[in-house]
């Protein structure tokens, strides 16, 4: 048991707990602002886990795109809307919430069981990887050769989303007058 390994384990545990903890925080906070901040923490801990899995580029992209752009947008919108509080468990658990917990719990149990049983011994062997596994070079090469179609389609999806965002945010003069009247 060498020091590197122990270090890795410690980092892993820290990241995992941070991840799960922040996840629970997102779901349970009443104030959406706090939920968004917790999500940023979640994203950061996930990035650490990605690094442990030799996915350097993905980790960087996660921090830059997700935490840097998407979450910022979230925070803008939350700021614009105002932090409306809604307590999740207010008024006692309704049948909907109970059912939700049961369903989610069931799913979790199944996955854990499946994974724990090593999916019928299929999760035994691990592949050995080279040094450039997960490097930007490698990812870039794959994007532009094997997965070119996915690359292009993703760009179209982003374009559509941008257009949609603009349309959704556009002011309609007639509508604004109507709203002002109300």
């Amino acid at each position: 048991m060498d020091v590197g390994n122990i270090l890795v384990w410690i980092v892993w545990f820290a990241a995992a707990f941070a991840c799960l903890g922040s996840g629970i925080a997102v779901v349970t906070f009443a104030n959406p602002f706090y939920s968004a901040l917790a999500l940023i923490g979640n994203l950061a801990s996930l990035a650490v886990l990605y690094l442990l899995l030799s996915a350097e580029f993905v980790a960087a992209a996660q921090v830059l795109v997700y935490a840097g752009a998407v979450m910022v947008m979230f925070l803008f919108v939350i700021g614009y809307l105002g932090g409306r509080a809604d307590a999740p468990w207010a008024g006692g658990p309704s049948w909907q919430q109970v059912a939700a917990i049961c369903a989610a719990g069931a799913l979790l149990v199944e996955i854990v069981v499946a994974v724990g049983l090593k999916a019928g011994d299929r999760l035994d062997d691990e592949a050995t990887i080279g040094a450039s596994f997960g490097s930007p070079q490698e990812i870039g090469r794959l994007f532009l050769t094997n997965n070119l179609l996915a690359f292009e389609i993703t760009s179209i999806v982003l374009l559509v989303a941008a257009v949609g965002g603009v349309i959704l945010g556009a002011h309609s003069r007639r509508f604004d007058r109507e709203v002002a009247r109300r």
């Binding site: 909907q96 059912a99 939700a100 369903a103 069931a106 799913l107 199944e110 069981v113």
Partner: peptide, 20 residues
């Protein structure tokens, strides 16, 4: 909306059982 989402989840859970 939440009822629909619940239905989705339940269905997913059932399917997962079947698959496993």
């Amino acid at each position: 909306l939440r009822a629909y989402a619940l239905a989705l989840m339940t269905g997913l859970a059932v399917l997962a059982v079947l698959f496993v």
